[in-house]
Nucleic acid binder design. Sequence first.
RNA 1: GCUCCCUUCGUCUAGUGGUCUAGGACGCCGCCCUCUCAUGGCGUAAACAGGGGUUCGAGUCCCCUAGGGAGCGCCA
Length: 489
Amino acid sequence: MGILLWVIYHLNRLLYLLFEIKMMVRTRFAPSPTGYLHIGGVRTALFSWLYARQHGGQFILRIEDTDRERSTQESVNAILEGMTWLGLQPDEGPFYQTKRFDRYRQVIEQLLAEGKAYYCYCSKERLEKVRAEYKARKQKPRYDGHCRHLSNPPHDVKPVIRFKNPEMGEVVIRDLIKGTVIFNNNELDDLIIARSDGTPTYNFTVVIDDWDMKITHVIRGDDHLNNTPRQINILETLGATLPQYAHVPMILGDDGQRLSKRHGAVSVMNYKQEGYLPEALLNYLVRLGWSHGDQEIFSRQEMIDLFDLKAVHSSPAAFDREKLGWLNQHYIKTGDPEELAKHLQFQCDQLEIETTQAPPLAKIVKAQAERAKTLKEMAQNSPFFFGNKIEFNEKAVRKHLKPAIREPLTDLCERLAHVEWNAEAIHAIVHAVAEQYELKLGKIAQPLRVAVTGGTVSPPIDVTVYLIGKTRSIDRIKHALTLMEEMNG
RNA sequence: GCUCCCUUCGUCUAGUGGUCUAGGACGCCGCCCUCUCAUGGCGUAAACAGGGGUUCGAGUCCCCUAGGGAGCGCCA
């Protein structure tokens, strides 16, 4: 009996494993290198990556560079750089479509031989005319199939090659996000699969690649939903198994309009420049158009475990920088200070802030985490920790460095000079001086703050003074005292 | 113009016919904490696009309208 159970158990496991192998998930991200990698692209890449990770599958990167005019190596580099920064490394690739022209040619030849594609000699002028005619008849502009049955083609024009799209019937897409979407074949026309120079076009190369690369789930922007029926028709003609489709809606700007440079359609690397953390950006993006109950914070592993294409909204979502900022600060507050210090160093380098005089950056991170939404902001808000010289805020000086504070401040300075340098001791001294002169804590803390930072805003005064360091603090207080003397004669 | 997609607080969303006098989060405003600024805690205001159905009952299902978006290239 025991042996029987053992056999059944392992048989089940074997079946399960076989099923898993058969159903091995393969997703892809297929950008065209005609610009930077922007936030919308990152989100579809993230969804694809998550889906592959969750199912123990592969995530493939494919560069769609068939448009040789507009594709650039810089763009490819920008895409690779962005994905590396975010930790969305592909398991396979990058594959370049321009290196697969032989394969495309081969399939085109096959389609031609089987009468499933044909040469089209129509001039651009004629095509335009035909389109205009359809439009005039209040129909969708499209190709009229003129060259489908051409008996004696002209010899002086280089033809394009068109795919014979079915004229009847409909294409039913079972989209994982959009649901069932139906297109009538009579809405479609015979699309060009090879240009007159022989190079293949997008709608064709995508199909061949997804097929060859055994992509099981095509997760992409919903601007491709309209292309899908054409692609399915080609796939079916080729006898290929169809992948599952998931069309994710686009991201809108904060004004609900199409994302433009003004609101964030900038390179992802721009977010690095601005001091955002990859985990914050990813967390923000995964929650844009997708949710798991009321959960807002997702670690990378949680995203992988919980992400679900079926829970992705079918409506577009607006990009909200405020919320990104909140998440970024969350990760600044909860992250490893040593790790964050590297990011802060990066920002200082960007801003040409000298950090050799500064206390350990990890300590600055700890002190400033609560008052910075980005690392860039943190670097900009901490000049008094970095340099030797500080700039006095005139208004702050006038308000807080009044004659009455001269004596307590002098006293304070004296005591600081003889204390063991740590935040607790400084804290005790500030309190003691306040008590001695019967001042509210603020009446001594603020003048001290102005003296050592030049302004009225900084981390708690004991921590601030501690981090600025003994010598620099005392020098600055003395400097402030002489300044006061000059002011008041 | 045609085809397709979309529509819950300002924004991201929960909600899969009754538990919704619609919940959470960001933001806003207020209060508390407080040496500043923040953080944190508490709280207020704030939405089912409109109209018809179906149903005992609709934010949830169906239809129409309006509004928004995408596609209609020898671009991807």
